[in-house]
Design a protein around this nucleic acid. Structure first.
Length: 299
DNA sequence: TAGGCGTGGAC
DNA sequence: TGTCCAAGCCT
C-alpha cells in the first residue's frame, strides 16, 4: 500500500467543518427521524441504500416506515407483502433479507435493533458496511464505516489512485487508523467521508474545485492520473438472466393477487430457456413460488 | 475472491 | 445507442 502522506489529525477537522456547512439535508440525518423511528429507521434506510441512489430511496423509505414503524410490526408481514412494498427498488432479495432481519430482531433481541456490531453482523442481509453504519449513525459508537465513497476518497486523497481496488477487509483497518478519538467526531468523520465521495469526490467528473481537502490530495498533486484500469466491470444487463428475473418479478408485482398462470409469465420473452431459468432461480431464492400451474409471490 | 444480483438516471 | 454508476451482500 502506498505511503499515507497526510496526517490523520489534519483530515478530520477539515472534513467536519465542511460537513457541517455543505452536507445534504437527508431524512435519516434529521433528529425527528431518529426520535420517531430510532435505529430501525437507520437500519431500513441502510438496506435500501445498498446499491440504490439516495433520490430513489427517500420516498420508499418514508412509505415503508409508515407501514412498518418497528421490527416487530414488519416481522408479522408476509414475504409477498414485503416484496410488493419493495416495488422497483431493485435487488429484491434485500426485501427478503430485511424481512428476515426483522424476524431475527424480534426473536433474538426482543424487537430492539442490537447495538453490538457482531450481533448486527449476524442478522440477514447485514455485512461489514451496514453493521457499522447502524452502530455509528444510530448509536453513535466509534467504528470504521467503509462504503464505496469512503474507499474512493481514501484511494485518491491518501493513495493517489483514481479509483479504489476491490473492497477488502483491509479497508476497515485503513479507515480505523484515520478515525478521531471521540465517538462523536468519529461518527461525523464517517459521514463526512461518505458525503464527500457522494457529492464532490465522485467516480466520474469529480468536483475537485469544490473539495475541502484538495490541497492535501495525493491524487490531485500527482496530476490526477488514471489508475482505474483494473476495475471490475458490471456485467452486461441487456439480454441477461437478471433482466429476465426482473421482468418475471415485475409481472408478478403487477398481477392481481400477486399470481399468474405459469404459462402466462412473460410469455413473449424471446428466450424460453432463459425465462424458465429465471423462474426457477426466483423460486430457489424464495422470491416466487409455484403452485397448481400458477406462479405467485411467496406467502 | 469473483461472480451474481435490479433498476433507472446521467452522459 | 451503449456504458457507467449507485451508502453491498451472499455464496
Amino acid at each position: 500500500m502506498p505511503a499515507i502522506s497526510t496526517p490523520p489529525s489534519d483530515l478530520a477537522p477539515t472534513l467536519a467543518e465542511w460537513y457541517r456547512s455543505d452536507a445534504r439535508d437527508l431524512p435519516w440525518r434529521r433528529p425527528e427521524f431518529h426520535a420517531q423511528f430510532g435505529a430501525w429507521g437507520t437500519l431500513v434506510s441502510e438496506f435500501m441504500l445498498q446499491q440504490t441512489p439516495v433520490t430513489r430511496v427517500i420516498p420508499h423509505l418514508e412509505a415503508w416506515l409508515r407501514r412498518w414503524p418497528t421490527p416487530t410490526s414488519m416481522s408479522r408481514a408476509t414475504p409477498a407483502e414485503v416484496v410488493l412494498q419493495w416495488a422497483n427498488l431493485g435487488y429484491p432479495r434485500r426485501a427478503l433479507w430485511l424481512h428476515r432481519a426483522a424476524i431475527e430482531i424480534t426473536e433474538r433481541h426482543s424487537g430492539a435493533v442490537p447495538r453490538d456490531v457482531d450481533a448486527l453482523l449476524a442478522l440477514s442481509g447485514i455485512g461489514d458496511y451496514t453493521a457499522r453504519a447502524v452502530a455509528a449513525f444510530a448509536f453513535g459508537d466509534r467504528h470504521p464505516v467503509v462504503d464505496t465513497n469512503t474507499r474512493r476518497v481514501i484511494a485518491r486523497a491518501l493513495e493517489g489512485r483514481s479509483h479504489p481496488g476491490p473492497a477488502a477487509r483491509s479497508d476497515l483497518v485503513a479507515m480505523r487508523a484515520l478515525l478521531p478519538e471521540s465517538d462523536d467526531e468519529s461518527a461525523v468523520f464517517n459521514a463526512a467521508m461518505m458525503e464527500l465521495g457522494a457529492t464532490v469526490c465522485t467516480s466520474r467528473a469529480p468536483k475537485c474545485e469544490r473539495c475541502p481537502i484538495s490541497a492535501q490530495c495525493v491524487w490531485i498533486n500527482a496530476g490526477r492520473p488514471d489508475t482505474g484500469d483494473g476495475r471490475r466491470r458490471q456485467a452486461r444487463y441487456e439480454g441477461s438472466d437478471r433482466q429476465a428475473r426482473g421482468a418475471v418479478l415485475k409481472a408478478l408485482r403487477h398481477s392481481d393477487a400477486g399470481e399468474l398462470p405459469l404459462d402466462a409469465v412473460i410469455h413473449d420473452w424471446p428466450d424460453a430457456v432463459q425465462r424458465d431459468r429465471a423462474i426457477d432461480s426466483l423460486i430457489a431464492d424464495g422470491l416466487a413460488e409455484a403452485a397448481e400451474h400458477m406462479l405467485r409471490l411467496p406467502r
